[in-house]
Every structure is written in C-alpha cells, then in structure tokens.
Measured scan of single mutants.
Amino acid sequence: MQRVNMIMAESPGLITICLLGYLLSAECTVFLDHENANKILNRPKRYNSGKLEEFVQGNLERECMEEKCSFEEAREVFENTERTTEFWKQYVDGDQCESNPCLNGGSCKDDINSYECWCPFGFEGKNCELDVTCNIKNGRCEQFCKNSADNKVVCSCTEGYRLAENQKSCEPAVPFPCGRVSVSQTSKLTRAETVFPDVDYVNSTEAETILDNITQSTQSFNDFTRVVGGEDAKPGQFPWQVVLNGKVDAFCGGSIVNEKWIVTAAHCVETGVKITVVAGEHNIEETEHTEQKRNVIRIIPHHNYNAAINKYNHDIALLELDEPLVLNSYVTPICIADKEYTNIFLKFGSGYVSGWGRVFHKGRSALVLQYLRVPLVDRATCLRSTKFTIYNNMFCAGFHEGGRDSCQGDSGGPHVTEVEGTSFLTGIISWGEECAMKGKYGIYTKVSRYVNWIKEKTKLT
C-alpha cells in the first residue's frame, strides 16, 4: 500500500490518463441519441435557420407576430419608411378606419389613436360632414345658397324668414311668412316636400332668348283662358290664391305678392273693366268669414305684352289694390325667389296649380277651390304637342294621358313649387288646347323671366 501511494504521488498524470480511459469505455446513459432527441424537440425550422439574422431580410411573422416588435424591426421587413409607417399605425392600436367614419364618399386613412378623412370636392370637416359648395344638395341650405369668396357655403332665406341657429334652416321672422300653410287642420295635408338634388348652379339658368321682337298675326285659340281631375282644397291650404270678379264672377285667378299687390295673367284683364279681388276665398257660393274683398285701382301688364300681336306672350300683369290686405292664416303671400332659384325650383319637376275653373272641358265651374299636382314636361315634348308657338318664356306641365289639367277660369292662378315646406311661385296658368285632352298640356308663363320686374313694381313704400 505504501508503494502504491508513492507511485500516485510521483505520477499524477498517469492516474488522470487511467481515469479518462475508464470513462470513455463506459456506456453513456444520461444523453439520448440524435434521433430520439429530435422526437422530443420537434420544432419547425425557421426561415433563416442556421444563418445569422443580421444578414437576412426581415420576416413579418418572425419579427412582429411571434413577439412584439419595434418600429426598427418592422422597418427591416418593409425596407421602406412609408410602408412601415402605414403598417405601424394599425399594428400599434388597430384600424381606426374600420367603422368607416368618413361621410359623403370620403376616404379614410388610419393613424395612431386617430384617423384622417380625405374629402371629395365640396366637403370638409373631420368626417367630411361639412358642405362647402352650393353645387351639392344646395349646400344643405333649406332655401338659398351662395358661395363666399373663400368658396364656403353661405345660406340665406327669402323675405319674412331668418336663418336658424344651425345656419342652414329657415324659420319665420314674421307672423305670416310667405308660402307657408298655417291653418292647423290643413298642415297635415301639406304636399310632399321637395329635397334639393345635386345641381350645376353655374349652368342652372337656361341660355334662352326671349323672342321679344317676333311679330306674329293673332292666333285663334280655343278655350285658351284655361282644375280638371283635381281635388277639393281645404280652407287655408292655398292662402296665396285669390279669385278675380268682373263682368262675371271667378273669371280668373291670381296670387298675393304682398298686402297691396296681386300677380295674374295679362290676358285676364281689360282696361276700363272694374275688377274686384277676393282673398281668403274657399267656396265661392258661401260666406265663410275668411274672405277679404278689395278693388283694383291700377293694372300693370308687362311692358312687352301686346294682345294685338299675341294674347299669351309675356302673359303676366300686376294688380294694385285700393287697401292693403290683412295677412292671416287664410290670406298669405306666395314666396318669389330670384331668377336663378325660381328656375331651379321649376326644374324640380312638379308643381301645384289651383283655381275655381271648370271641372271638365266646357263644363261647370268649381264651387270649392280645386288643386292638382302636375309634372313638368320637357321642352321637346311640349313643342311636338301643339302647332302653336311655345315661346321661351312659357313652359308645359300636365299629363300625356289627359284627364287632369287646369281649365277655363283658372287662368292667372299660381303654379307653385314647394321647397322644404315653403311654396314659391314658378308659373302662372296661361293657356292650353281644350282641357285635359290626351297628348295636350297646360301652358304656363315662366315666372323666372319676370321676377325682377315683379319685385321692382310691387315694392311697398
């Protein structure tokens, strides 16, 4: 034993070699072989497995989906700052455009905790909710729209109204504003409101030439003092309507412009014939205590009207009353817009006519005020429907199939267009061939041609 100890002390290297040989010859039971080890760690190889990531292109799944990435790591994937920024906006807080917040056709661009709407022409605001041009839906104005110097929408209202708090709607500024039905039992019968379409306001006024200088022999019209197929109006439903009495009662109609003036057809009036105007009328054979009678003290036909040349060209006249009318729910003026808007309103496509005229061709006159909704007829169809001249200051309205029309005794009465609950004068009943005849239409004086003249002559002093 002493000898062994001496050998170990003198030859430590020998001992180490012996131990190493023993270990190498022993069977290893701690580690699995290569094949079995792979069965336990069965993990798919990654895209760049075996390579240094710093030297390969980034992978979106590896960089940002398996674990949260930084902007720089995302930049490695896209290799483009702009594309990385677009991805980053949604990656950080989701897609803010998912709810489609942009209105009126706006395009949404996502941002971090926010979004941006790219608005089409005519709109602005956070969600493109603000109209900035009158060309689109009248700028959301209830009545009139004008573009300011910086191309912003400025709404306005006709006389007797003021802008509401929203700067879009119009509200009454006087007790009985024009064009409004205020009798409670008839307010439910107000005709369907007309909503502004998209309009090209630059070209809204037709490029028409008034044929002022045409000389033409007097034409022989049949029954051209021209509501057939209409309905009984309720008291106060058309408070701007008046009836004219002269040699015979209810020979023509008219509309209240203001307390002192009536507008009617020029062919209705004769110099030297006494005319009485009755406002607030409903049943011409009954006294309903809503009527107001006034005498006409002055007749002003349009300066281009000449019955000797043509009885229905420039067929418009103004009547001055001896005493002002007292405005109330049964006696209310009709609204008159400017030339541009009167023309736009007419193009809405349908209007209402009213009167006490004959209820059928050569038949009896109506006792109760009649009204009828009539569609506008395109000019080409209008011209083809008659052998008589249709001037540019006239328009056609009615039904091709016949059966409904204005008729004798309705002449001078109103053709009105309702705009968001307020009625505007767009025409004056003038003439036609018979009444409600198939293929024939009622012919009306186009008020847009005469609004400046009306307003100039009827100013209240």
Rank of each mutant, 00 (worst) to 15 (best):
I7G: 14
C18K: 03
T29F: 09
V30G: 15
E35T: 13
A37I: 07
L41T: 09
R43D: 10
P44D: 14
Y47L: 12
N48H: 12
L52C: 04
E53T: 10
Q57P: 15
L60E: 05
E61D: 15
E67N: 04
E72Y: 15
E73S: 15
T81R: 13
R83M: 07
R83F: 07
T85E: 08
E86P: 15
W88D: 15
Y91H: 15
G94Q: 10
C97L: 00
N100D: 11
L103M: 13
N104R: 03
S107A: 11
D111K: 08
W118F: 09
W118N: 15
C119D: 00
E124T: 07
G125M: 00
I136V: 09
I136G: 04
K146Y: 10
N151D: 09
K152T: 09
V153A: 09
V153E: 03
C155F: 00
S156W: 14
E159F: 06
Q167G: 06
C170I: 02
P172A: 11
P175F: 05
P175V: 08
V181L: 10
Q185H: 13
S187V: 10
T190D: 09
R191F: 08
R191A: 13
D200H: 06
V202Q: 12
N203P: 10
A207K: 12
L211W: 13
I214Q: 12
V228A: 14
V228R: 12
G229W: 14
G229L: 09
G229Y: 13
E231L: 08
F238H: 04
W240D: 00
L244K: 01
G246V: 05
A250Q: 11
W261M: 02
W261D: 01
V263Y: 00
V263G: 00
A265Y: 01
A266H: 02
A266Q: 02
C268L: 00
C268S: 00
V269T: 06
E270K: 11
K274R: 10
H282C: 05
H282M: 08
E286S: 10
T290P: 05
N295Y: 07
V296D: 01
I299F: 08
H302Q: 03
H303K: 12
N306G: 03
K311A: 09
N313C: 05
N313M: 09
N313R: 13
L318Y: 01
L319F: 04
E323D: 10
E323L: 10
L325V: 03
P333L: 00
E340L: 09
I344R: 12
V359D: 13
R364Q: 11
R364V: 10
Q370C: 05
L372Y: 12
V374S: 04
V374R: 04
P375W: 06
T381H: 14
C382T: 02
K387F: 05
I390F: 10
Y391L: 15
Y391S: 14
M394I: 10
A397S: 04
F399K: 05
D405P: 14
C407M: 07
G409T: 06
E420K: 07
G421M: 05
G421R: 09
T426L: 02
I428S: 00
I429M: 14
E434N: 12
Y441A: 07
G442R: 09
K446Y: 02
S448F: 02
N452T: 13
W453P: 00
K459F: 07
L460A: 08
